[in-house]
Design a protein around this nucleic acid. Structure first.
Length: 285
DNA sequence: GTCCAGGATCGGG
DNA sequence: CCCGATCATGGA
């Protein structure tokens, strides 16, 4: 168990923010996730103090980066135009949300799956894919031994499969987990990552325009999914994905188009606040 | 049963 | 370049 104080960090909101599909709140103060082939539980102890179900070394090597804890989110919130009522509200409401640095292949496949589906439906499909061919991930003993933590939601957890495993699946396999018409998209993406035609390192070495071009040239990856991959896996925080929810915001509050060039390098982070607010904000009004 | 979902592709104008 | 039809399925 590693305990530390973190400002502007709210795992509960992050779990509900819809940017990742394998993180979930257990109750109001506990959140669990699987990433990097590991199970992690976080307990919110109040006063901005959090307990992680791992050692200090794992926290520093993996989770500090995963949760983007080195970035100044307070400064980003302060940079918002005070005359933009909607954005000010959204940023305040979502305070504590971080842009996760998710694994590349998982993000590509998850967002290919995401097209034209609701978030619960995406989660179901990604979970089915993981339990079909991802390796089982143990829950650390610490979760059961230390009463700071609570019982996990599920009995078993599975890593998101790597490209070699997904590349072995047949169209029937993918249809069975509910991939629907995205099945051929997933198959080709898995082949490209498995063959080495696409790699995280290769893609990450590209600048924004080149990366965008590389992603949108993939079969089944269009404008929106490419921007999500860039934002949620490559930390290209200037990218501004527009889905049906953001489009509604643009129509209602920004005359049809949000001027993302006003926030170079941070528009994507603000986008996530907007997305969270339009979907969850009304629940507390 | 109906409707919509963190859209992309394809063909045709 | 822009437009409309179409795509398979889960969840509300």
């Amino acid at each position: 168990m590693y305990k530390t104080k973190i400002n502007f960090f709210n795992p509960y909101k992050i779990a509900l923010s819809g940017q990742a599909f394998r993180i979930a709140p257990i109750d109001g103060t506990h959140t669990e996730l699987v990433s990097r082939g590991k199970y992690l539980q976080i307990a919110d102890l109040g006063e901005s103090v959090f307990a992680f179900s791992c050692g200090e070394e794992e926290f520093n090597n993996i989770w500090h980066n995963y949760f983007d804890l080195g970035r100044d989110y307070e400064g980003i919130a302060r940079s918002v135009d005070p005359g933009d009522d909607f954005l000010v509200k959204a940023t305040g409401f979502g305070s504590g949300i971080r842009i996760l640095k998710q694994e590349c292949f998982e993000t590509v496949i998850s967002y290919i799956i995401s097209q034209r589906r609701s978030i619960p439906s995406i989660t179901t499909c990604v979970d089915r894919l993981s339990s079909l061919c991802g390796g089982e991930v143990p829950v650390p003993d610490e979760v059961f031994k230390n009463d700071i933590f609570v019982s996990p939601l599920k009995e078993k957890y599975y890593a998101f499969p790597d490209a070699s495993r997904v590349a072995e699946l047949t169209a029937d396999d993918l249809n069975r987990i509910g991939a629907g018409y995205r099945t051929p998209y997933i198959m080709r993406a898995a082949q490209d990552f498995n063959s080495g035609k696409l790699t995280y390192e290769g893609l990450d070495s590209l600048d924004d325009d080149e990366l965008y071009k590389a992603l949108t040239s993939m079969y089944g990856v269009g404008v929106k999914v490419a921007n999500c991959i860039m934002l949620f896996s490559f930390a290209r925080t200037g990218r501004f994905p527009v889905d049906v929810w953001i489009k509604r915001i643009e129509d209602k509050y920004y005359g049809g188009k949000f001027d993302e060039t006003r926030y170079p390098g941070t528009a994507g982070i603000l986008q996530q606040f907007m997305f969270y607010y339009i979907r969850k904000g009304s629940l507390e009004e």
